[in-house]
């Protein structure tokens, strides 16, 4: 994932289940600011909710960073989700679909990948997990 120009950045700490609502709210607002229509805002907010839920449930808390990003000809939104929890042992398996394989880890990561345009994940057992997802809008 190549770095993009960032015009705004919001950090949201995730410690309590109720923190998810704040992350979703901010995601919708920023997505609107980035020019996404209501459907686009909803998709981005859903992706944020999936990632935030994982962090709260399995990551022992963490952080979501929401960014307005820009490249020539397009702008969009970036979600960075990070925790220092147990990590994901088998990322390949976590990225498999639930219904096609029946072997999903149930983290909703394939869903996040489909909701967004770009998706990156890195995880080390015992160290934590980092997800970055982007959705673009042509200018």
């Amino acid at each position: 994932m190549t770095p993009a120009r960032i015009s705004e950045e919001v950090h949201i700490d995730l410690a309590l289940p109720s923190d998810n609502a704040g992350a979703i709210c901010t995601a919708k607002r920023l997505a609107g600011q980035a020019g996404f229509d209501e459907a686009g805002q909803s998709l981005i907010a859903t992706a944020v909710s999936e990632l935030a839920t994982n962090i709260l449930r399995y990551g022992g808390g963490g952080e979501v960073v929401l960014r307005l990003i820009h490249e020539p000809g397009r702008s969009g939104m970036e979600i960075l989700a990070e925790d220092h929890g147990p990590g994901i042992r088998n990322i390949e398996r976590a990225m498999q679909d639930h219904f096609s394989t029946g072997k999903s880890l149930g983290l909703g990561l394939p869903g996040v990948k489909r909701l967004m345009d770009e998706f990156f994940i890195n995880s080390k057992p015992g160290v934590g997990t980092l997800c970055i997802a982007r959705k673009w809008r042509r200018l």
Partner: peptide
């Protein structure tokens, strides 16, 4: 709502 429906499709829920 349409936004909810398209998100549910991407999430591949049953």
């Amino acid at each position: 709502q349409p936004g909810v429906v398209s998100a549910l499709m991407d999430l591949d829920v049953d």
